[in-house]
Simulated assay, not measured.
Amino acid sequence: MQAGTSNEYGAVLESGAVRFERLLSGPIERVWAYLTEADKRATWFCGGETEPHAGGQIALYFKHSQITDEPPPESHRKMNDEGALMGGTVTVWEPPHRLSFTWQGMGDPDSDVEIELTPAGDKVRLVLTHRRLATKSRMANVSSGWHLHLGLLEDQLLGQKPRGFWSRHERLMAEYAERQHEAE
């Protein structure tokens, strides 16, 4: 999916599930490293170690001041400045093609994330599906978050200056909430 097109948006698959697809700069092993190595993942999403096997733990340490220099809204200042630790359990570990894990934290019921990588010429197709999002507000928040974070991943892989995060967050959350409403 090309950045800047309507295909950049995640697609609602079913109630409580969203799917994103991106065509990224490869090779596949490099993209895998940005998904699984704490220092690389911290440049676009969140830090934290991943035990490299099914049944292993994944730490999700969000500290957005590491991925953007934009000031956060007051509601996200603590996570931005001090960080927030969440986690989960790796359910699939198939390097460099498939990573799945449960996501626990933020006071919400657990959800499931699946990321698949496939070669596409000199690019890599990333398909990310997040399921079991319990509420519409969680669905909008997670959808806008993945939208923004995947954009930052694209920037990292291209060696570009990271695009804005907080300046786009509230608008995207509202857009995803509206998209859900229209899909009903």
Rank of each mutant, 00 (worst) to 15 (best):
R22M: 04
L23N: 04
L24M: 00
L24K: 02
L24I: 02
S25M: 12
S25W: 03
G26H: 02
P27F: 15
P27Q: 13
I28Y: 10
I28Q: 11
E29T: 15
R30Y: 00
W32N: 02
W32I: 00
A33H: 00
Y34M: 04
Y34D: 05
L35P: 03
L35R: 05
T36Q: 08
T36Y: 04
A38W: 10
R41T: 00
T43W: 00
W44V: 04
W44Y: 01
W44Q: 05
W44G: 06
F45N: 05
G47A: 04
E49V: 08
E49T: 07
T50N: 05
E51T: 06
E51C: 05
G56P: 01
A59I: 12
A59H: 05
L60P: 13
Y61G: 01
Y61K: 03
F62N: 12
F62I: 08
H64I: 08
I67D: 01
I67W: 08
D69Y: 14
P71C: 15
P71N: 11
P72L: 09
P72V: 02
P73K: 04
P73E: 03
S75G: 09
S75R: 10
R77L: 10
K78M: 14
N80S: 13
D81F: 09
D81R: 15
G83V: 13
A84L: 09
L85N: 08
L85V: 09
M86L: 06
G87I: 14
G87E: 14
G88V: 06
G88A: 10
V90I: 15
T91F: 06
T91K: 14
V92H: 14
W93T: 12
P95E: 07
P95I: 08
P95A: 02
P95N: 06
P96T: 08
P96Y: 12
R98F: 03
R98C: 13
R98Y: 03
L99K: 05
S100K: 00
S100R: 00
F101M: 10
F101C: 13
W103V: 06
